[in-house]
Every structure is written in structure tokens, then in C-alpha cells.
Design a protein around this nucleic acid. Structure first.
Lengths: 160, 160
DNA sequence: TTTTTTATTGACTATTTTTGACCTTTTGAT
DNA sequence: ATCAAAAGGTCAAAAATAGTCAATAAAAAA
């Protein structure tokens, strides 16, 4: 392990934990690289492999003078359960009917809002249309694609 | 250690907020520049990067003796306005950069929530990945598809 | 051992901020 | 009417950051 990447990952996590400020922190890419004696782009690698949205982080940055990289942890690990549950509920493929049914349930349980439900439905339909009209993918394959997108979307907000 | 630009941005916002006068204020470019010990054109930079119409402000000015710069924070009114605004902001195609920027602005203006922003980002990325890896669509065309999806999603929640 | 995945680097690119030289508009005095 | 002074505007260069991508190298899996 050791690896530079891992060390940097730990370093950032430490900062995030001790930062009283709502587990959010700001760094200078160059500085961080210097403290670890590596090239700056190494930091990008760490961020894109260890601090992705899927993993519960939001990363924003700005170039130019006084540039920065801001990392925010948006996940409380106790939501793991919900996640697993969702994964199983959605499964590998899912029909449009089922999608509607599931979303309806989630909404009633106030796990997602009406607006969020709309967003999800719009996205799924759009994807489906593309798959069908533009590329004529089979219905079954489209369902797989939709299931994947649905899972990703649900994950992203359950973690938030 | 924030940038000059950011400091000036905050200063102006403070003035706008405490100004009882309908969140509108008038400044002298030269004076403000002097307050911050910078060249006057720095003020133009701040205005054009932080107080654009997109971001909800109207800026008017006049040269010559008794010149001034007036800054007004405008409220978002009807749904129609929001929609038109969105349509224009997104346009026909949109880069990932611009997507992030736009969503960030919408979130700051509280037109969408963090969760909604996450949902949208995930959906767009998913669509993009599909387009690229599965069907090898050109980058430009993918941007068009993304713009369409983005507009649909935003429309759906603005109208909700 | 061979293959596949993950890390490391660096050359090249892109964005943002800061500064300054030069331009335009408005007012007011003569 | 003219001109000088007093604003504000534009634009492009320079400086300060961050991002991308592809070639290697190292580690893990098969």
C-alpha cells in the first residue's frame, strides 16, 4: 500500500475529519504536491480515484491566481444500508412500470422529493429515447442501461 | 488568503445587503479601487465575472463628471422568466465545464438543491458515457444531447 | 509467467486574476 | 463651441493556478 496515492488520501481524510468546518476543506494543488514531493497532477489522480461523487465527496476547483481545490464530504457512512437496499431493489434491469412504482414508493416514504422524482423520470426517458431512436438498441438492453442510471442517481442523492 | 477579486465581491455584497434601499447601490469606481489598493479596471473585472445578469444582477454606469456604477440585485420572478432564462443559458450545446458552472450558479441562487444538482450531474455523465463508449458519438453531438437532457430536467423541476 | 489494473510523471493545455496602456463619454468653465 | 478635467471602458499581456492525456512503471490478478 504505502503508495503515494494512499498516503495523500489519508492526509486529506485527516484534514477533513479534524476540520471543524463541516467536513469541508480547501487546498492548493501545488502545495500539497510539494509536501509529498510529487508532481501536481498526482493530486488529480488521487482526487479522481478516491474522492469521487460516488464515494461521497464533492470536489470543486478553480484555476488562476489564488486557485484552489475544495473537497467536501457529503456522506455519513450509516447510509450504507439504504444503499444496499436500493441496489437490490432496482436489480439488473427494470421495466418502466417498475421504475414508476419504485419511485412512487420512495416519494411516499419521503426519501425523494417530487422534484427529484421528476428529474429522474425525465433523465430515464431521455436516455431511453436516445437508445431507441438513435441506435435502435433492444428493449432489454435499454432496460439494463436505465437500471444502471437509476441506481447511480439514487446513490448520488442517498449519499448526499 | 482569498483573492482581491473575492474580497471585492464580498464587499459589494455586504453593501448590497445592508443597503435598505431595495438592494441597489451606487459606487465610484476609482474610490472602490483605492479602498482596495488596486487599479480601477480591477473593478470591471469583478463586475463582469461576479455580477452578471446570469448571476442575478443588473449593472449600469455612467462616465464623465459625476460618473457612477450602479449595481442592483434582481429577484427572479415568474416561472416563465426562469424558463426563458434557462433556455438561453444552456443553449444548443454545452460543455461539461459550463454544465458545472451553470449548476453551481443555480444552486447558489437556490433554484435547485444540492441533491438535485447531484442527480443532474450523474444523469448527464451517464448519458455522455453511453454516447461515447457504446456508440462513439462525436463530442459535439454528445454536447448537444446533453444540452437537451439538461434543459428537459431543468424544465421539469422549474415547472413543478 | 502473462495479463490486467493501478500509480507516477511530465509535457502540453486551459482558466482566472492582476495590471497597465490607451479609448470614450460627460460635465463644466471660458 | 471648445477644451480640459473627470469619470468609466476595453483589451491584451503577464502571472498564477489547475486540468488533461498518454507514456511508463509497478503491483495485483489470472
Amino acid at each position: 500500500m504505502s503508495s503515494l496515492t494512499h498516503a495523500i488520501e489519508i492526509y486529506i481524510n485527516d484534514l477533513l475529519n479534524e476540520a471543524a468546518s463541516e467536513s469541508m476543506l480547501s487546498i492548493r494543488r501545488k502545495e500539497l504536491a510539494q509536501t509529498f514531493g510529487c508532481v501536481p497532477s498526482q493530486i488529480n489522480y488521487v482526487l479522481s480515484s478516491r474522492f469521487t461523487q460516488e464515494q461521497g465527496y464533492i470536489v470543486e476547483s478553480q484555476r488562476g491566481g489564488h486557485g484552489y481545490i475544495r473537497i467536501e464530504k457529503i456522506k455519513q457512512n450509516t447510509t450504507e444500508d439504504k444503499l444496499n437496499h436500493l441496489e437490490k431493489a432496482v436489480g439488473e434491469t427494470i421495466s418502466w412500470q417498475d421504475v414508476r412504482k419504485n419511485l412512487s414508493i420512495l416519494q411516499k416514504r419521503e426519501i425523494i422529493t417530487t422534484r427529484e422524482r421528476l428529474l429522474i423520470e425525465v433523465a430515464l426517458r431521455h436516455c431511453d429515447e436516445l437508445g431507441e431512436s438513435l441506435f435502435g438498441i433492444s428493449s432489454h438492453k435499454r432496460e439494463g442501461i436505465q437500471a444502471e442510471l437509476l441506481k447511480r442517481m439514487l446513490r448520488s442523492i442517498v449519499l448526499a
